[in-house]
Design a protein around this nucleic acid. Structure first.
Lengths: 149, 149
DNA sequence: ATGGGTGCAAATGCTTTGCAAGTAC
DNA sequence: GTACTTGCAAAGCATTTGCACCCAT
């Protein structure tokens, strides 16, 4: 069993919540994603794998996974779906968002962590977490873009 | 007239949009806020000043102000109201969010700007903008908290 | 046995939109 | 005169919730 499953089990047990088949199915499917995903995508993947879980349960479980610190939730606007990102492989809470394609590229930055601490300290706060998105546009590999018309 | 008004006028004119009384009223009221605010607060303030503007027009105008770069929009989750922040006085796009009270504290950080550039460059992107929130908990000024109970 | 979990459908809450009448340019 | 705007109410959309039944512990 994955360590994430174990962590989740412990998290649930500590608050007298139950480790159900639905919750296990969701976590295992979430773990497969190699990139941030939307609820709709997760539902499709669950159905593809013949795992029957309702939309409501997916939302409820994602909330627990976020609470457990196993998954990060990204906001892109009111009325827009949240993205969720499994925090495996040392992944942090930092993303480059390609403003042209919408692609979301996670990255890690120890400098950023240090910067958070420094700023929070200056303002009299303890760091509990952070959200960081760089909005960017892909650089042309070289030379001007293909001739416009 | 404030420079922001002027900027907005130019922005609108450049795209053949109109500078109406409603838009002016909204911008001037937005400018008064010394901190990030919700649409609901803005509406209340407009009514207090006897400026009649509909909710729909407030939303439509805020969208233009964000597009013009005069106002920043902060997301806190689907189904949660956006906050808006007038970008005056060198204010950037960085905030400390008090996880206990919900208070939103803007701050500036030249280091962060530099860090964005460095990271984006490394990944092959041009920086178009960024969103940064530090989630924090207020430090006790000193000693343990006042006796519980 | 029991307290939490699930699916369904309805509800919620922020934001957007269609439309008819008004107005900046 | 011609678009663009406005206010209103209705629609839209992601997410949450009430409820009756189910199940992990």
């Amino acid at each position: 069993m994955s360590s994430a499953c174990d962590d989740f089990r412990k998290f649930l047990h500590a608050r007298r919540l139950k480790y159900t088949g639905e919750r296990e199915a969701i976590l295992q499917t979430v773990e497969q994603f190699q990139r941030p995903f939307e609820v709709e995508e997760l539902l499709l993947e669950l159905r593809r794998l013949n795992l029957r879980v309702s939309r409501a349960t997916v939302y409820r479980t994602l909330r627990h996974l976020v609470g457990a610190g196993l998954v990060n939730q990204l906001f892109f606007g009111a009325g827009k779906q949240s993205y969720y990102d499994f925090l495996g492989g040392g992944r942090g809470h930092n993303y480059v968002v390609d403003v042209e394609t919408g692609m979301i590229l996670p990255f890690t930055s120890p400098e950023l962590t240090a910067l958070c601490e420094r700023i929070a300290k200056r303002l009299g706060y303890h760091v509990v977490g952070h959200r960081f998105q760089i909005l960017g546009r892909r650089k042309e590999p070289s030379g001007p873009a293909p001739t416009e018309k």
